[in-house]
């Protein structure tokens, strides 16, 4: 596997959330708003990359009996560090993520990557794998977050939890902007589907997104099967024609 493939696999082919269904707790709990989803993803990228690097460095030192406790200590150290840093610099994000920051420790994605990749591969490869997988995880979280925030408020807002680049929260996109071209005093938030920011909406939104992905791959597989069937039919036809020709030849010879 080349380094580029190793990096890109986390996005689509081996996406932790959409394909492997790993790390579902944060995927449901912190995706009501796009920004908290992004923040969670960034924290996971850091923890995953660092723990992969350290596990890979120590892979020949750690005895087999205490593999799991040792990995957990390494991961928990980085989780505690990102918890402190986020509390110091992005306090709103820290409050919004709450208990899910320490819970990064038990995200099966991180321990799984340590077990299945970092403990068997070189440091650089492990770092690339961790970074790519983390980006894939973040990508999935952001997709869910945008989907849910758009349905529940009718727009996307930046700057409330991650106070970077802007002083005041800025509306990046809102349906108001389009509708107000025709009708001046319309507030989309009054008509939005609030359910999608609540607990049931989390399950249903993720279900819809997974169904979209599964439907697409189901259609692709169906198409492939159909193409294969057609090829078999054509091959049969050719074979039959050959047989007929051969029979004819035999007949003529006789």
């Amino acid at each position: 596997m080349s380094k580029k493939e190793n990096f890109l696999k986390g996005f689509f082919k081996e996406n932790p959330i959409f394909v492997f269904l790993l790390g579902m707790c944060p995927a449901l709990a912190v995706t009501a708003v796009f920004e908290t989803a992004l923040g969670m993803g960034l924290l996971v990228i850091f923890v995953l990359t660092m723990s992969n690097i350290v596990v890979s460095m120590l892979r020949n030192v750690i005895p087999n009996d205490v593999r799991t406790p040792a990995y957990i200590v390494i991961i928990a150290t980085f989780v505690t560090i990102v918890g402190m840093v986020s509390k110091a610099f992005t306090y709103d994000l820290y409050l919004a993520l709450g208990v899910f920051i320490p819970l990064i420790v038990v995200n099966c994605l991180i321990l799984g990557r340590a077990e299945s990749f970092a403990s068997k591969n070189k440091v650089l490869d492990s770092a690339i794998d961790g970074f790519g997988m983390g980006l894939g995880f973040t990508f999935a979280l952001v997709v869910i977050g945008v989907f849910r925030e758009f349905l529940s408020t009718g727009g996307i807002i930046w700057g409330e939890f991650l106070p970077f680049f802007v002083d005041q929260p800025v509306t990046l996109f809102s349906l108001d902007m389009i509708i107000n071209l025709f009708n001046s005093d319309f507030v989309i938030a009054d008509y939005a589907l609030n359910m999608f920011s609540l607990a049931p909406g989390a399950f249903i939104a993720l279900g819809i997104i997974l169904a979209l992905i599964q439907g697409k791959s189901a259609r692709r597989i169906k198409k492939e099967i159909e193409i294969q069937k057609q090829r078999i039919v054509e091959l049969k036809k050719v074979a039959l024609a050959k047989k007929a020709a051969a029979a004819k030849l035999v007949k003529e010879a006789a």
Binding site: V61, P63, I74, T77, T80, I81, M84, K87, A88, F89
Partner: peptide
């Protein structure tokens, strides 16, 4: 085995202490 765990534990304890020391006044 125990020594490796001891070392990892001690190093992470020290690391967390230092980060806490840096971030606590900011918080």
């Amino acid at each position: 085995t125990a020594l490796v765990l001891l070392l990892i534990g001690a190093v992470s304890g020290g690391l967390i202490y230092i980060v806490n020391d840096i971030t606590a006044p900011i918080i």
